[in-house]
Amino acid sequence: ATNIVSKVKWYNSTKNFGFIEQDNGGKDVFVHKSAVDAAGLHSLEEGQDVIFDLEEKQGKAYAVNLRIK
């Protein structure tokens, strides 16, 4: 899926990962520091509106092509 609009559930800049809620009630989506860095960001804030693409690797959903709404 591409261009999903949602909100950051939480992000831990010390552990370099977090999760984004899915508005459709699906499972929370993992977001890694590499996606945050690629977006030119230093961190994410809880409740922040984001747009991302969903990529599945080894049966897990990852946020990629992250951008701020």
Rank of each mutant, 00 (worst) to 15 (best):
V50L: 10
V64K: 08
N24F: 11
N16L: 07
A35C: 05
W10E: 01
A35N: 04
K69R: 11
A35K: 04
E21M: 15
T14P: 05
I4A: 06
G47M: 05
N12V: 06
K57P: 03
T14G: 10
A61G: 08
K33W: 10
G40S: 06
F30G: 02
I4T: 06
L54S: 03
K15W: 12
E56T: 14
F19W: 11
L44M: 05
E21L: 15
V50R: 00
K57H: 12
E55H: 11
R67I: 08
F19I: 04
V8C: 04
A63D: 03
V5A: 11
N3K: 06
G40L: 06
V5G: 09
S6F: 06
K60C: 10
A1K: 14
N3W: 07
N24R: 11
N65S: 04
N24D: 11
F52L: 03
Q22P: 13
V31H: 02
V8Q: 01
H42D: 12
G59M: 05
K69H: 13
T2I: 13
V50F: 03
V36P: 00
G47C: 08
F30V: 01
V5C: 13
K9L: 06
K9W: 02
V31E: 00
A63Y: 03
Q22C: 14
A61S: 13
I4M: 10
K33D: 01
D49K: 12
I68F: 10
I4S: 06
L44H: 02
E56K: 11
A63R: 00
A38D: 08
V36H: 01
D37A: 14
G59N: 08
N16T: 07
Q22I: 11
Q22R: 14
R67V: 07
V29R: 03
S34F: 11
Y11F: 09
G18N: 01
K69Y: 14
Q48R: 06
G18Y: 03
K69Q: 13
S13Y: 11
Q48D: 10
H32E: 03
K7D: 01
Y11H: 01
H32G: 07
G40C: 09
D49S: 13
G26K: 13
I51D: 04
V29M: 04
F52G: 01
G40V: 03
D37S: 13
A35V: 09
N16G: 15
Y11V: 03
Y11E: 01
I68E: 07
D28F: 04
Q22G: 15
K9F: 03
D37M: 15
G18K: 01
F19C: 05
K33A: 10
V36A: 03
K27E: 08
G59K: 05
I51S: 06
I51F: 07
N65A: 04
I68M: 10
S34G: 08
E21F: 15
I20Q: 01
D53L: 04
A1I: 12
D49T: 15
V36R: 00
V64L: 04
K33S: 08
F19V: 04
V64T: 11
R67G: 04
S34H: 10
D28K: 04
N3D: 12
L41P: 02
V31K: 00
V36T: 03
H32F: 05
K60I: 08
K60E: 06
S43N: 12
S6W: 09
A61C: 14
K33T: 04
V36Y: 03
D53N: 06
L66Q: 00
E21G: 13
L44T: 00
F19P: 01
E46C: 13
N16K: 14
H32S: 07
N12I: 07
N12T: 06
D23W: 15
E45W: 15
N12F: 07
T2Y: 13
A61E: 10
F52V: 04
A39I: 08
V5L: 11
K7P: 03
F52P: 00
N3I: 06
G25L: 08
E45Y: 15
K69G: 12
D23K: 15
D37N: 14
H42I: 13
Q48G: 05
V64S: 07
D23F: 15
T2G: 08
V29Y: 12
L44K: 01
E56S: 11
S6P: 01
L41S: 04
S6V: 05
A38N: 08
K57D: 09
F52T: 02
T2H: 12
E21R: 15
A38P: 02
E55Y: 14
E45D: 10
K27S: 10
D28Q: 07
D37W: 15
D49F: 15
S43H: 12
F19Q: 02
L41H: 07
S6E: 02
T14L: 13
N3C: 11
A61Y: 14
Y11T: 00
V64H: 05
D23S: 15
N65Q: 04
D23A: 15
E45Q: 13
G47H: 07
A35D: 05
D53R: 04
S13H: 12
F52W: 09
S6K: 04
K7M: 05
R67H: 07
V50H: 00
R67F: 06
F52C: 03
Y11L: 00
A38E: 09
L66E: 02
E56L: 14
G59C: 07
L54Y: 08
L44E: 00
N12H: 09
S6H: 05
E46M: 14
G40I: 04
N3G: 11
A38W: 07
K69W: 14
D23R: 15
L66P: 01
E21P: 04
D28G: 06
I4E: 04
L44Y: 00
F52H: 03
S6A: 15
V5K: 11
F30H: 02
E21A: 14
W10F: 10
A38V: 08
K57Q: 10
L66V: 09
G40E: 06
D53P: 00
K57C: 13
E46H: 13
Q58N: 15
E45C: 14
S13K: 13
K57N: 11
D28T: 05
D37L: 15
H42T: 13
D37C: 14
D53G: 03
V50N: 00
H42M: 12
A61R: 14
A39D: 01
I4P: 05
V36C: 04
K33L: 05
A38R: 11
N65W: 02
W10S: 02
E55W: 14
Y11I: 01
F19K: 02
K7E: 02
S13F: 10
K9C: 05
A61K: 14
R67L: 05
F17I: 03
Q48K: 05
Q48W: 13
H32T: 05
V64I: 11
S34W: 10
N24M: 10
Y11P: 00
H42Y: 12
E46Y: 11
G18D: 00
N24W: 11
F17M: 06
D49L: 15
A63M: 01
F52D: 00
I51E: 09
E21H: 14
A35W: 05
Q58V: 08
L54K: 07
K9S: 04
H42Q: 12
K57E: 08
V5H: 14
Q58L: 12
V50M: 05
K60V: 08
S6C: 08
L54E: 02
H42F: 12
E56I: 15
K15V: 09
K9N: 02
N12G: 05
Q58R: 12
K27T: 09
A61P: 08
L54Q: 04
F30R: 02
R67Q: 08
W10K: 03
D28S: 05
A39E: 02
K60D: 05
D23V: 15
E21V: 15
A63T: 02
G18H: 01
K9T: 02
W10D: 01
E55Q: 11
H32L: 04
N16A: 12
L44C: 03
I4R: 10
K9H: 05
F17P: 00
L66S: 00
G40F: 07
A61W: 15
G25D: 09
S13V: 13
E21S: 14
G18C: 04
K9V: 04
V5N: 11
A61T: 14
F30C: 04
Q48P: 01
K60G: 07
N3P: 07
D53H: 03
V36D: 00
N65P: 00
V64G: 04
I68G: 06
E56W: 15
N3E: 07
I51M: 12
T14W: 12
G18S: 01
V29A: 05
V5Y: 12
N12W: 09
G47T: 03
G26P: 08
S6D: 02
F52R: 00
N16R: 15
E21C: 15
E55I: 14
H32R: 03
A38T: 08
F17R: 00
G59R: 05
G26Q: 11
V50C: 04
L44P: 01
F52N: 00
V29H: 08
A1P: 10
L41Q: 06
K57V: 11
G18R: 01
I4D: 03
E46D: 09
V5M: 11
Y62I: 06
K33F: 09
A35Y: 06
A63K: 01
Q58C: 14
G47I: 02
L54R: 07
Q22N: 14
D49V: 15
G26E: 10
V29D: 00
V31Q: 00
K69P: 15
F17N: 01
K33G: 10
E56A: 09
S34T: 12
D37H: 14
G26L: 11
D37K: 14
K15F: 11
H42W: 11
G26D: 10
Q58M: 13
E46P: 15
L44S: 00
S6N: 06
I20R: 00
G40H: 07
Y62T: 07
S43F: 12
A39Q: 03
K57G: 09
D23P: 15
V36S: 00
K27H: 10
L41D: 03
W10R: 03
F19G: 01
K27R: 12
V64R: 07
Q58I: 07
L54P: 01
N65D: 03
A63V: 05
R67D: 04
D53W: 05
V5W: 12
R67E: 05
